[in-house]
Design a protein around this nucleic acid. Sequence first.
RNA 1: GGGCGCGUAGCUCAGCUGGUAGAGCAAUGCCCUUUUAAGGCAUGGGUCGCAGGUUCGAAUCCUGCCGCGCUCACCA
Length: 516
Amino acid sequence: MALDEKIYELRRDKLKQIEALGQKSYPRQYKFTHTIPQILTEDSDKTAEQLENPRVNVRVAGRIMAIRLMGKAGFAHLQQGGQKLQIYVKKDAVGDKGFELYKLLDLGDHIGVSGYLFRTRTGELTVHVEEITFLAKDLLPLPEKWHGLTDVELRYRQRYVDLIMNPEVREVFLKRSKLVQSLRRYLDEHGFIEVETPMMQPIAGGAVAKPFKTHHNTLDMDLFLRVAPELYLKRLTVGGLDRVYEINRNFRNEGLGWRWNPEFTMLEFYQAYADFREVMDLTQNMIVQAAKDVTGGSKTKWGAHEIDWAVSKWRRMTMREAIVQFWPEKAGAKPQMSDFALHDSVKALVERFNAVHPHMAYDPSEPTGKTVAALFEAVAEEHLVQPTIIYEFPAAVSPLSKNKPDEPDWVERFEIFACQMEIANGFSELNDPEEQRRRFEQQLKQRERGDEEAHQMDEDYIRALSYGMPPAGGVGVGIDRLTMLLTDSHTIRDVILFPLLRPEKNSTTEDTEEEA
RNA sequence: GGGCGCGUAGCUCAGCUGGUAGAGCAAUGCCCUUUUAAGGCAUGGGUCGCAGGUUCGAAUCCUGCCGCGCUCACCA
């Protein structure tokens, strides 16, 4: 028998002994007067004398995270809400049965105690226990108290244990929740309504990405998990929902990395009668407000960098300006604006860049605009640590945005970068159905070239646009990445509670697969 | 998918040029009525990721596989 199985059996045995003492093994509820965080905020400043007169009586519940028995008395630390409070259990105070119960308790058990607060000889705020109530048993041993749980794989697989042992993990997810709250509040206050659109779609549109495929049995229909809600949200602006947003999951069947998880959460919103500049400003203000709501200030730490979210500190430049500004000296003279217009001059830029840098992928048969966008990522992205707005994107990588009136190969689109990550993407929405059809047709040509990520034709979307979509600006914001920025997390897996992992060996899922 | 690294007790980790497995915490028993990484004495606990190979002998060397991490490529 494995050690943890032995401990499991031993603890089941103790549970029976606890029942024999008259305690319920799995009671239904516990009426508490205080939470542990509450006691710590209310009573941490009180002196020993102040706690004696008048006495502060408390009933609190928590999980045992440390326990020390010393003959006929003992201490334990209870944890609740990520915080710990010490309890003192004396045989004289809890009686024979109460002390028998105390001796049967293990690390990880849930108990409730009633008693009064006092300070120990060393000054620690402690509950002098008069009654212990057993609440639930931990049958499996918790990780070691000093080092805790550090194995990265175990932390992701058994996030419940990670959350018990590592308070900073709890903080990250509390901040993530605050972030989403803040974004919702901001949009609600600006007259947006929240909607939910299909995650299972017959055509996976709205972004350039490989979708996951699934199947509905009764309808005998192949479906895709959505890569973006975009086309559905814009159908809603056609329907008269002038300001809509959705916060939900997108699924992209692509590589994993520190910035990429196959399912990720995105905020998308659309505002009728606004262009890309107006939603750009709105997004910037919304993010600045969110940083304030989550962290309490306008500056946050990310690794060695201090990120200043104050609106006045944001930089704005066009994609072409960014390539010029961050062009590496080793690659020779900085590009001229006119170099971005022609296939051959762009090719020359790539060759100059690749000669002195790790090679960026380059396919001479791809549209010139696509190469420019790739060149931007290779040249500039790593320099974009402070919040920066990059605007004016090539039309070739923007099949859903409006053209710049004076430069039709470029579109009214922007992205927000910080800490070398793209965190938002927005544009003046293309609402001309005939131009949209031409864009889809261009994408189809890229598909024929073998680009699996290129957009498919969506006839119903074009039909919707044909009923007249108001001019609108729309934006997508990566919630996971924004959480990373605001919590100093350096991998997306640290801001996703249950990141995708391969199935565990000998797991039940594997067994059932074999049976099926 | 490519490259690099890791996998030893429930947890955190040692284990040398190959000689048959260790510590701390956790666990079990005993002592201890203000301790706090409590302490003291004693005890139990291992398919050294899996499968082959080399060898008299493998946790250790070799090969393959599985899992994880980092990184590169593709993508947000």
